[in-house]
């Protein structure tokens, strides 16, 4: 296997007054080296908890209850804390949606980048680390990096701050970058700059990226493979091209139909009715069936598991492909 990361049957639960609920309910995924996996789904579908689980950063009262997270041959879930800490940041790095709140306002951005480098390299001199930090800022195309090094986060725009976060995340040349909605808070032109930057950096360094987003446009531009998540499960997995050209799951169809297109003129968008059920009030059977236009009695009763329908294309739907069932319904 040439997968850098492979997640097997991961289950992350949260303790609530009403009992334990699964935010991630048996997810299996893999990311090959140098490739980008896009994870899409609505808010509350478990995509952020999945990424935090991978970093072993699930906040209490949550915990990873079952599964394996194989990273480069070792199971992250059984790693001692100290080893996990050494690995986190150095080999797996993460960037978040909010560049405003991810930086400490009372330290210069230079200090913060150096601090991150220092955590993994105790012996290097201050001067060496400063030079490396400036090189990192330069690499994310921040103009005048020597001057920016001594600036505070509030002196920078949102796009600049996200570049600083990326510089910090990449300062130790990680093998895997987890990017959780990295451009959602940014304007479109800045978003385009950041996506271009991530793509170029991936080509230079050969890192793998897990890109979490709700924007299918971003997925189409960035991802090699896509996992569509719904209510804590992966409901469809395929190459990015197959997700757009051969979408199988009704939820994927709903997401695709919801995007307003620039070229097409539709009177109405194909919205998905209703909302993602919270993990403590999941429906029986297929978790999507109350919102699904194709659902029948079997969908209410049976919870479908992922099945293979083509090369590297998996779907968790009893009725897919949907064109085969239409005639059966009068």
């Amino acid at each position: 296997m040439n997968d850098l990361l492979s997640i097997e049957d991961l289950r992350t639960v949260f303790r609530t007054p009403a009992g334990e609920v699964s935010a991630v309910a048996g997810v299996s995924l893999s990311v090959p080296r140098g490739k980008t996996l896009g994870i899409v789904g609505e808010s509350g579908c478990g995509k952020s908890v999945l990424s935090l689980s991978t970093m072993r950063l699930v906040p209490p009262p949550g915990r990873v209850a079952a599964g394996r997270i194989m990273f480069d041959g070792q199971d992250l879930l059984t790693l001692p804390d100290a080893e996990m800490r050494a690995l986190r940041g150095r080999r797996i790095a993460m960037i978040f949606q909010e560049p405003m709140t991810s930086l400490n306002p009372v330290f210069t951005v230079g200090d913060q980048i150096v601090e991150a480098m220092r955590a993994h390299d105790r012996d290097a001199s201050d001067l060496v680390l400063k030079a490396r930090a400036i090189a990192a800022l330069n690499r994310v195309r921040i103009p005048a990096p020597e001057r920016r090094f001594d600036e505070y986060p509030h002196q920078m725009s949102g796009g600049m701050r996200q570049r600083v976060m990326i510089a910090m995340a990449l300062s130790c040349e990680p093998d895997l970058l987890i990017a959780d909605e990295p451009t959602t808070a940014l304007d479109v032109t800045v978003q385009a700059q950041i996506l271009d930057l991530l793509r170029d950096l991936q080509q230079q360094t050969g890192m793998a990226i897990i890109l979490i987003t709700h924007d299918l446009g971003v997925v189409a531009e960035m991802a090699d493979e896509v996992a569509v998540m719904y209510a804590g499960r992966v409901v469809e997995r395929a190459s990015a091209k197959a997700i757009f050209d051969d979408p199988q799951h009704p939820y994927t169809l709903g997401l695709l139909g919801s995007i307003p297109k620039l070229d097409e003129e539709h009177d109405r968008l194909l919205a998905i009715e209703g909302a993602v059920p919270p993990p403590f009030a999941l429906p029986t059977g297929c978790r999507f069936h109350p919102r699904c236009v194709f659902a029948d009695a079997a969908c209410k009763a049976t919870d479908p598991s992922l099945r293979r329908i083509g090369d590297a294309h998996q779907v968790a739907c009893l009725r897919a492909p949907v064109e085969t069932i239409v005639d059966a319904v009068a």
Partner: peptide
């Protein structure tokens, strides 16, 4: 600029 910056939902592009 604004128009060309929008990510399009088309992986072939």
């Amino acid at each position: 600029t604004l128009l060309s910056a929008i990510p399009r939902p088309d992986p072939h592009r």
